[in-house]
Design a protein around this nucleic acid. Structure first.
Length: 300
RNA sequence: GGCGCUAUAGCCAAGUGGUAAGGCCAAGGUCUGCAAAACCUUUAUCCCCCGGUUCAAAUCCGGGUGGCGCCU
C-alpha cells in the first residue's frame, strides 16, 4: 500500500524541485500545502512554480482563491483531503509539498474541532472586548469557561485565547478536551532538505534579490491597483506586506529588501522548529538527497 | 596645538553613589479554522583603560586612550 509522501521544510530549501522530481518518478500528483500559493496573482513573492517548472506534473491547491478572499486550514483540509484520498484510491502515492506545517498537519491528522468554525460575530465581539478591557480580562474569561486551555495559553496570545473562547461559545465544549495525541489519517513519510543554517540564509538572500529583479514590486503594485488592501489575508505574505508598508512609509527599496530578507529568515527558522516535531520525518542533508532512497521510503 | 562633548551587549540606548531599564538583531521554543500569522523564553558577573575618594562607583575626582564638534 503506497504511503503519502510529504515534502516539507524551510522556505528556499528546494521543496518544489524535489517534489516534481519525485512526482515524475512515481507518476503521481502534487498537493501543495502552502497558505499563500493558494492565491491567484501572488506569483513572484511566493516563488510559485511556473508551468515550465512543473514539467507537466499536476499541482493541486495552487491558484484556487482570489486575493480578496480569506482562506483557512479548514478550507484547505476540505479541498485537499479528497484529492489525497482519490490518489490513494488510484494506487498512487500522493505528494504533499509545502512549508505551511499547519496545513500539512491538518491533512495528515484528523482534526478534533471540525464542527467549531470561524464565527466573525464572536471574533469581533471578543476583539472589541479585548480593546476595551484588555488581554487579562479575556484570559480571565477563558479561565472561567475552560481553565485548562487558559492554563496553556499565555495571556498575550490573544488570537488563541479568542479561538478557545469561540470554540466554547459555539459548541459548549472545551478546547482542552481535544486529545493530546492526534490521530493520523494516512501512513506517511516526511522528507525535508536540511541545509546548514548559514547556507539556507544565503539561499534566501539570493532568492529575495531575484524576486525583486523579477518584478515583485510591480506585482504588488498591480495587486494594490486591483483593490487588494493591506489588511487582507494574502497581504500578510512576506514580500508583500513589507512592500505595501514600505511604499506607505517611504522606505527605500534597499530597506524594504532587507526587511523582506530578515522576515524570510525568521520564517524559515519557525518552519524548521515546527517540522522538527513531525513524526516519520527524515531531514536529509543536501549532499545526500537521493531520489531512489526517498522513493524507497515511500514503499517500505 | 587649544577648548568642549562623549565612551554601557553585535547595534540603538536608560541609568548621574547602593549592586546594570528598554528596543533591535540573534538563538531556542509554542502551534488543532486568520499559520509567510500570532505568541513565549534566553542573551553584559559587568559599564574604554589606569589610579584615587567612599562602607559602597557605570555613576564622583585625576590621568591615559578612542570618537565627535569647535577654535587657532
Amino acid at each position: 500500500m503506497p504511503k503519502v509522501l510529504v515534502i516539507c521544510g524551510a522556505t528556499a530549501s528546494g521543496k518544489t524541485a524535489l517534489s516534481i522530481a519525485c512526482a515524475k518518478k512515481l507518476n503521481t500528483e502534487i498537493i501543495s500545502a502552502d497558505s499563500l500559493l493558494v492565491y491567484k496573482g501572488l506569483n513572484i513573492g511566493t516563488a510559485k512554480p511556473t508551468e515550465e517548472e512543473k514539467q507537466g506534473v499536476t499541482h493541486h491547491l495552487i491558484d484556487v482563491v482570489s486575493p480578496f478572499e480569506s482562506f483557512s486550514v479548514s478550507d484547505y483540509e476540505k479541498a485537499a483531503l479528497p484529492i489525497v484520498e482519490d490518489l490513494l484510491a488510484q494506487g498512487k502515492t500522493p505528494i504533499i509539498c509545502g512549508g505551511t506545517g499547519f496545513y500539512v498537519n491538518a491533512l495528515l491528522y484528523k482534526s478534533q474541532f471540525g464542527n467549531a468554525g470561524a464565527n466573525e460575530e464572536i471574533r469581533r465581539y471578543y476583539e472589541t472586548l479585548y480593546k476595551e478591557c484588555g488581554k487579562e480580562y479575556l484570559h480571565n474569561l477563558l479561565a472561567e469557561k475552560d481553565p485548562e486551555s487558559a492554563e496553556k495559553l499565555h495571556e498575550n496570545d490573544v488570537k488563541r485565547v479568542i479561538r478557545a473562547l469561540e470554540i466554547y461559545d459555539l459548541t459548549g465544549k472545551k478546547k482542552s478536551m481535544q486529545q493530546d495525541e492526534p490521530v493520523p489519517r494516512f501512513d506517511f513519510v516526511a522528507v525535508s532538505i536540511d541545509y546548514p543554517r548559514e547556507e539556507l540564509y544565503e539561499r534566501i538572500e539570493r532568492r529575495v534579490d531575484k524576486m525583486f529583479e523579477d518584478g515583485l514590486l510591480q506585482e504588488v503594485q498591480s495587486l494594490c491597483l486591483q483593490g487588494v488592501k493591506r489588511d487582507m489575508q494574502c497581504m500578510q505574505g512576506i514580500g508583500y506586506k513589507e512592500i505595501v508598508e514600505g511604499l506607505e512609509t517611504g522606505a527605500s527599496l534597499e530597506e524594504i529588501k532587507e526587511t523582506v530578507k530578515k522576515n524570510t529568515r525568521n520564517y524559515a527558522k519557525r518552519q524548521i522548529t515546527f517540522f522538527k516535531r513531525m513524526k516519520n520525518h527524515f531531514r536529509i542533508s543536501p549532499s545526500e538527497v537521493n531520489l531512489e532512497k526517498i522513493i524507497e521510503l515511500c514503499l517500505t
